[in-house]
Write a protein that binds this DNA or RNA. Structure first.
Length: 320
DNA sequence: ACCTGTCAAGTCTGG
DNA sequence: CCAGACTTGACAGGT
């Protein structure tokens, strides 16, 4: 099995390269000239996209083939006070430059809209905002001219005191999304609400791939063994041109088992990789650690020399 | 240069 | 019905 590692959003190594600079809504509203305020937002977005490109070049220099974009590339994009704003004409060249670089170097990229995007919600307003948020993420991928291999990953959402009803509501509301969006979606198991098995069921019903988060599974396993679920999870990727993806992070400490530690504990991950290696050809592993790319390099160094682990480049191993 | 409270959004818990 | 926790990078306003 060939395993590639990636990291999320920002680098702790490249300095002054935030892809998530922003402006508060309060500050925006204090600027008397709205047109000037909007130009300022667009300038921040251009800087975020420029820094994203710098990060991709950093990734390229270190053989990192997988990366998750910040969801905050365009400040206040889906805020109520900016519903009539269309920044895409202005930002098109910057988005295209990012997309061109991704394609030129055959990188795997994604978004992870945050937990305000919830399709299990019973609230009309929240559903409306969730759809709008996803649309805007897809608009960004389309502005980069990336095809449906570039995904948006979300969770199923809250349970509202009735998990079965909430799941049914999710299936109905998520299922109603247009193909343009749904073809780019993946679903991830949650650390509090929907377990791996429940998320898998939803993925099968909606015909979208499942991203297994092995840390979330560890704190919310629903009595299931993730190795036993793995063959079915792999099946949700069978129509895709990209390998299955998992998320990995390690508990911060015993008191905060759900929080993310600075680095990734190699033992837990390696045990899972060894277990699935015989039945899996390729796997992409997204590292969700506080130390971002530094955690990736530390993990690679920890894996170096482990039995049955062969290093192929700075972010890729062969195992089993 | 550095520190501290605050920030768009949702959900859950506890009072 | 409302406040606070959750969690997180960065702002905003201060020294």
């Amino acid at each position: 099995m060939i395993v590639r590692f990636g990291y999320v959003s920002m680098s702790v190594i490249v300095e002054n390269a935030s892809p998530s600079k922003t402006m508060t809504a309060t500050h925006f509203q204090k600027i008397p000239d709205r047109e000037a305020a909007i130009r300022k937002l667009e300038r921040i977005a251009e800087q975020n996209l420029h820094n994203t490109l710098r990060l991709l070049k950093h990734n390229r220099a270190h053989d990192i083939h997988m990366y998750r974009f910040s969801s905050k590339l365009i400040p206040l994009l889906t805020h109520d006070i900016l519903r009539t704003w269309d920044p895409f004409p202005t930002l098109k060249p910057a988005f295209k430059a990012v997309g061109d670089y991704v394609k030129e170097h055959k990188m795997r990229v994604s978004f992870h809209p945050d937990h305000f995007t919830v399709f299990s919600t019973p609230r009309e307003e929240v559903l409306k905002n969730s759809i709008y948020d996803l649309e805007q993420h897809v608009n960004m991928l389309e502005a980069m001219e990336l095809d449906a291999r570039a995904k948006c990953n979300i969770h199923i959402g809250g349970t509202y005191g009735n998990k079965e009803e909430s799941l049914q509501r999710f299936l109905k509301q998520f299922g109603a999304l247009p193909t343009r969006i749904k073809q780019r979606m993946t679903l991830e198991n949650d650390d509090k609400t929907f377990t791996s098995r429940e998320t898998l069921t939803a993925c099968e019903a909606c015909n979208v791939p499942m991203v297994l988060d092995i840390h979330h599974h560890w704190v919310n396993d629903g009595g299931d063994d993730m190795t036993a679920l793995w063959p079915s999870i792999v099946q949700t990727w069978k129509e895709e041109e990209i390998p299955p993806k998992i998320h990995v992070s390690s508990p911060k400490n015993e008191k905060n088992p759900r929080s993310h530690a600075d680095f990734v504990e190699v033992t837990f991950l390696l045990a899972f990789l060894r277990a699935i290696a015989p039945s899996t050809e390729r796997l992409d592993v997204m590292i969700e650690a506080k130390k971002k790319d530094e955690a990736l390099f530390k993990l690679m160094s920890d894996l170096e020399g482990m039995e049955g682990v062969e290093t192929l480049d700075q972010s890729t191993i062969r195992i089993g």
